[in-house]
Design a binder for these strands. Sequence first.
RNA 1: GGUGAGAUGGGUGAGAGGCUUAAACCACCAGUUUGCUAAACUGGCGUACGGGCAACCGUACCGCGGGUUCGAAUCCCGCUCUCACCGCCA
Length: 424
Amino acid sequence: MLLLNLLRQDPESVIKALLKRNLDARPIVNEILLINEERRKIQNKTESLKAESNKTAKLIGLLVRDGKASEVNEIKSKTALIKKELLSLEKTLLDLEIKEKETLLSLPNTPHRSVKQGFSPKENEIVSTWENDPQRTNDGLIPHWELASKYNLIDFERGVKITGAGFPIYTGNGARLQRALIQFFLDKNTQEGYKEIQPPYFVNEESSFGTGQLPDKEGQMYHIQNDNLYVIPTSEIPLTNLYRNEIIDESKLPIKMTAYSPCFRREAGSYGKDVRGLNRLHQFDKVEIVCIDHPDNSYKRLDTMVNHVAGILKDLGLQYRLLRLCGGDMGFTSALTYDFEVWSAAQQRWLEVSSVSNFETFQTNRLKLRYRQKDNKISLAHTLNGSALALPRIMAAILENNQSPDGINVPNVLHKYTGFKKIS
RNA sequence: GGUGAGAUGGGUGAGAGGCUUAAACCACCAGUUUGCUAAACUGGCGUACGGGCAACCGUACCGCGGGUUCGAAUCCCGCUCUCACCGCCA
């Protein structure tokens, strides 16, 4: 949620920034300002009436105490009038408040100045590419879904039987490799100072709202209706919400957390070759990093997070490229997002494996997540998160890129976790 | 699932229709005193929104939502959550 004060002070800069998302926000911004003006007007009126009524009530108290009951009735009739007026004013005020918030919620975050305007993923900027020369031919290469069944690593069919499409069963060395990756990622993250957390996999409505999944992405989450809980599409939700409604001492910043969790996404409406094998699933594993930091520090923090993720991909020997997303491809809540894509040699395409974002105050404004400065001033903190890393496409790339006629070579850094060096 | 007890500021906890502007203590911050620290003493110490250049003023908030009343932390109704014990259970 954008800052109302910013919108009041400098609406033009907000409108200009949102153009990068190909959104003409002018009508909405104008509407908000209009509602806001009206709201403040009504609020002023309401509050002065309340002040009067409070004063009168106190006076009655004094009169009753002094035994001057005869004067009380007269005053009572006066406050009855105030009350009547208040009744309709308060209703109007509430309506305006709701409308103001609703309208404000409909605006996405303002892109950072470094973000380019653009409509689609095609306009994302390639910031850097590691391993300049990925294998540009898939001669003789087998896609990961075939490798997975050739070496008995994943059982897609039985996954369909017991749950449905998009719920693969990892078996034997496949399961072991998956676990090795999770542990490797968690170790890398904790070495970097991220505190390991095991969060719940279900969250309540308030938490989903806090990080912005509600109301924008309601249809993407699995919902447990009996208990009104949402199954997490990412551990970003429980991690970031840990500090919801809290005021953190400035000296405690940054707060750095990491968690492994399975992630559940309905992915309604996506079919075809993009979802083949491990490319897109309803349940997948991910290790996430989340930072809560001082506003002055958050873009430096974003850079260190990006470098950290890059380091992990290098350790695994995966060819990747780093993208800065254009305005049109960025998530609703983000101000700046970098995506990592690894090269999938058999499919001859780039696969997104990590998304690292700075949300600035967009989430903390909803979360009421603030920090206290030395001079006791209270401000909203910045939140950031990133995947470090999402498992399935990493798995796909490892299988495809490291295949040879006699098996699949496991990256060196994983040997101590897998206990084997080759899958054959 | 059953029964019972609760929910008050950063923490403990009083308050049971109007002298509450929520006591007191602890914690925290500043000052006095002091060779340093501690102790003692004095003062300060919530959040949000609105108004104001500011000092400051107003409003709301005692789990959440309604109601009664001129007036509600306090009375009434509904909900949520927490804790304890019992049952079931990895």
